[in-house]
């Protein structure tokens, strides 16, 4: 990797490790190997959101042209959010694309992602299904997002009714994740969800 990118990442890495947010366990960065091209990020779901208390793991790839090009960031933890693909974890965020600027850092990226969890932008969706649910039935969206967070990100607040519905389908022999996706997509209507899985 280009020297500039390595020098910069080493420096930033130290900064994040020492930062206040890390001290409060709000964000975290770890090296995956010692090449500084691949890192593992972690953000804590912000308070007063469906993601509260959850731990979300991110895959961070540093391009050779860093910091003049943004890092490639993706959620490894499954998440229900209008701007994050529930299938791939791909993120739709301007600063990770054309609004990237050289004074942005790993720290600001992680904080921006945390901010995105607190304030979704449904008009520029990455996941159209989630975005529609967010706009049309915001209660169901919040519960679904909380249900995903408790199941995939170890968030403390559970949604027992939804847990039950997933368990029902699972007991019928369906794959748990597929069942969850189908139920989430069909606003927790068990029959529609089953139809969807079987079709």
């Amino acid at each position: 990797m280009a020297n500039i990118a390595v020098a910069r990442i080493k420096r930033e890495f130290k900064e994040v490790v020492k930062s206040e947010e890390v001290a409060k366990c709000h964000i975290k960065v770890e090296l995956v190997d010692d090449s500084f091209t691949s890192l593992r990020g972690e953000i804590l779901g912000p308070p007063d959101t469906p993601y509260e208390g959850g731990t979300f793991i991110l895959d961070i790839r540093i391009p050779e042209t860093y910091p003049f090009n943004p890092p490639k960031v993706q959620f490894l933890t499954k998440i229900w959010h209008p701007n994050i693909s529930s299938v791939t974890g791909a993120i739709c965020l301007d600063i990770l694309k054309d609004q990237w600027a050289a004074a942005m850092t790993l720290r600001t990226v992680l904080l921006s992602l945390q901010a995105l969890l607190a304030a979704p932008e449904p008009d520029d969706p990455q996941d159209a299904v989630v975005a529609r649910q967010y706009k049309e039935t915001s209660d169901i969206f919040s519960q679904t997002a909380r249900h995903w967070a408790s199941n995939y990100a170890s968030a403390p607040h559970r949604e027992p009714v939804m847990d039950d519905k997933v368990a029902q389908l699972k007991n019928m022999g369906f794959d748990e994740h597929k069942a969850r996706v189908a139920l989430s997509t069909h606003n927790w209507d068990i029959e529609q969800a089953m139809e969807n899985i079987l079709s």
């Binding site: 301007d94 054309d98 600027a101 942005m104 904080l111 921006s112 607190a118 520029d124 990455q126």
Partner: peptide, 20 residues
């Protein structure tokens, strides 16, 4: 295609920007 816009307060790292 459109993309979400990051909340303004965290875009640029103030420390990095200040030191440069």
């Amino acid at each position: 295609s459109a993309t979400a816009s990051a909340s303004q307060q965290f875009t640029v790292d103030p420390m990095r920007s200040e030191r440069a």
